[in-house]
Structure formats: structure tokens, C-alpha cells
Amino acid sequence: MSTASRLRLFYFAYYGAVGANLPYFAPYLRGLGFTGEQIGSVQMIGPLLAAPVALAWGAVADRLGAPGRALALAAGGSLAAAAFLPWARTPLALGAVVLAQALGERAVVPLADAVTLEWVRRGAGAAYTRIRLFGSLGFIALAQGLGLLLALRGDRPGDRLVPVAVALCVAGYALAARRLDVPGSAGPRPRARDALALLGDRRLLALLLACAVHWGACAPFHLLFGVFVRDLRLSASVTGLAMAAGVGAEVLALLAYPRLARRFGARALFAVAFAGTALRWALLARVEGAAALVLLQLLHALTFGLFWGASMQAMAALVPGPLRATGQALYAAVVFGAGNALGYQLAGWGYDRFGGVGPLFGWAAVAELLPLALSAALASPGRPRS
């Protein structure tokens, strides 16, 4: 299998796991009797570990000049823990499994992105977004397919099919990562002070802050969208259809991104992404019917597709090649670690306090105004740094 095919398969399986986890795992835990605070606490474990885990794996990958090898090891560790997911059905047991899985899984995306960005930089003939969109296709396949299966099984509380689907997807991306042997950038291996120097770049810090707040504001959707659908007395098949519609729009945005970036520049695309997301949350806070809920998910093209393309283009331009894995790990630590952990905890607490998910979307719309304001300070990136 070619490197391109392995990368596509990896992203398909990894984001397939996300498609099984994001819309259905919180309702699965609710069906096991978990409270909103317990759901938020369990789901917060991964984001809390994202910073040290991703940075440690990224530093090792850059120091060895072997991000592909590090990715295979991290994915294998994630699989070893994920195999126990279907049998962990108490907060303590599930927390232990999630903790063990996070020690590898939280480094998987930054390492995979480092491998892909380096492969693209070497003239592989494909844009990063054209490879990454296979992750979106995997998300659609699992979110839609699992939703239909859960509905056919009667939308049972605590259906074990959810963790089984997640574990199978983890097995898929672990296998795909086994022979991704793309080497790191040529030249002297970076030292610790070279990595610390990244934090002196104000453009990079502005980018990380804007992205972290944006991702934190997405937490009510990521954590509780499936619960939101059930609270509206709608079927799990509606959750799957809404996710499929959103990620379908995301795929189109990723396909169009190279052309949009050449025409408008990253600063303008960031602003559109943040403004469109604020509108999405404000409208979702008031939605009631299935049709309106599904249509609103088309704005996911901005929330993730446009946002992610601009973020990765900016990271490729701001971080030098020998520090690619460390840079991606730093992004994951700040955005998926700090931003996600705070967002998840506040979302779980807010659900118990307000008695529903709708008010949380209203607060998320307000939070999106900060990255929108910061977008004016985000420089349009140039060519990737080698």
C-alpha cells in the first residue's frame, strides 16, 4: 500500500472513531446512569493529558527524526487500552481505560499531521486538506451508520455497540500506522531550547489562543449534541443524519480550501469561520425540529473545514520542518488539551446547572466573539518552512 493510501486509511479510521465517539458516547454513558458532571469528568481526562502526552511524543519524534515510527507506537498503545472499552461500565473503570488510552491516543493526531505535512512538503503532489478529508469521510460513515444501527436496535440505553465500534476503528488506524515510514526533515536534530523558542513567536501564540477558545466553545456540541437530540425527543438516526450533513459540508470546504486560500488569504478565512460558528451556535440554541437541526449542521463547513485548513496552513508556515512534530504537538496541547478540557468541564457543569444543552449553545456563541476579534491579528501564512 502506498504512503498516500495509508495516510488516507489512517485518517478514515481515526475520524471514524471520532464519529462513533463524539455523537454517541455521552448518550451511552447517560444510559449507564452517569450524571452530566461524571460524563464531563470522564471525557475531560483525554484533553487534560493532551499537553504532556503530545509534547513528549512530539519531542521524541523530532529528536529521532522519525515521526512515522513514533506514530505507530502511539497508535499501538491506544489500541491496547481501547480493547477494554466495551467492558468498562462504571465511572472508575471507564476513567482508568480512558486514561490508559490517552497516553498514546492524544499524540496520534499531531504525529499524523506532522507526517502528512512533511510528506506534502516534499512534493508528494497532494494538498494536506485533500488527504485529511478522508478523515471526514470516515466520520460520516461511522456517525451515520452507527446512528442507523442504534435506531434499529431500539435506541437502548447503554448499548455496548458504541464502545465496540470505537475500539474497532482504533484497531483500523493502528494497523494503517504500522508502516508510515515518512522521515522527518533533514538537518540537525532540534534541541529543547529550539522547541521553547516557538513560544517566543507572537503570531504563533495569537494563533494558538484563537484556536483554543474556538475549540473550547465547540465543547457543548462535541460533548452533548447526542444528549441534545435525545432531549428534543428525536431518534439517534437524526443524530447520525445531522453529523453526516455537517461533515459532508466539511468535506466540501476541505476540497475547496486550497483555492479559497489562494484567493482570500488565511486571515479572512479565519474571520469567516469564527463569525459563521457564532451564528451557528446562536441559532442552534433555539432550534426545535429535526429539519432545522440538520440544516444548521451545514455550517460545520466553517466551524471545522475552513478553520482546520487555515490552522494547518498557518502551522506549516510558522513552524520550521525539524520541529514539525513538536509544533503540531504544541497545537494539540493548547487547543485539544487546554481548550477542550476547560470546555468539556464547563459544558458538563452547565448541563447540570441549566438542565439542558440549549443555553450552553447561547454562551458558546458569545465565546466565539473572542477568536473573531483575534482573527485580525492572525497573519496570512506563506509557504511551509523547511
Rank of each mutant, 00 (worst) to 15 (best):
R178N: 07
W215H: 08
G154T: 12
R203K: 14
A174F: 04
L208V: 06
A197Y: 10
Y173N: 04
G154S: 11
L241H: 13
A242F: 08
D181W: 12
A167H: 01
F225Y: 11
C218Y: 05
L224R: 06
S235P: 13
G184L: 00
V164K: 00
A165H: 05
W215C: 07
G246T: 05
P163G: 05
V229F: 00
P220I: 04
R191G: 15
G240R: 00
L152T: 08
Y173L: 02
G158Y: 12
G158N: 13
D181M: 00
A245S: 09
A165S: 12
L205P: 01
E250A: 00
A210P: 09
V238W: 05
R153W: 15
G172Q: 08
F228N: 03
V238K: 05
L175P: 11
D194V: 03
W215L: 08
D194R: 04
L168R: 03
G172H: 02
A253N: 04
P163I: 07
V170G: 13
V227R: 07
P157F: 07
H222G: 08
F228V: 00
A219T: 09
T239N: 05
A249C: 06
L161N: 09
L204V: 08
G154Q: 11
V162L: 13
L152D: 15
L199D: 13
A176N: 11
R156D: 12
P157H: 00
A192T: 09
A195W: 00
R178E: 02
A217G: 02
S237C: 06
L209H: 10
A212Q: 06
L199Q: 11
G172L: 09
A219H: 02
G158F: 11
R191D: 00
C211S: 13
L198T: 12
A197L: 05
C169W: 06
P220N: 10
V238N: 01
G246L: 03
A249S: 09
L180G: 03
Y173K: 07
M243Y: 15
S235A: 15
R230I: 10
M243F: 15
R233S: 15
P183M: 01
R153I: 14
A249P: 07
R179W: 15
D159H: 12
D181N: 14
C169E: 04
G240H: 04
G246H: 05
C211A: 14
G187V: 09
G200L: 11
D194C: 02
A171H: 05
C218E: 02
E250W: 02
A165Q: 05
L208D: 06
L198I: 13
G216P: 04
G200V: 03
G187D: 08
L207S: 09
E250C: 08
V166G: 03
V162Q: 10
G154F: 08
T239G: 03
G154A: 11
R202N: 11
V251T: 14
R179V: 00
V227P: 10
A245N: 08
V213Y: 01
R189M: 13
R193T: 14
A236Q: 11
L161P: 00
G216H: 03
L205H: 06
D194Y: 00
A217H: 02
L241K: 03
S237Y: 01
A167R: 01
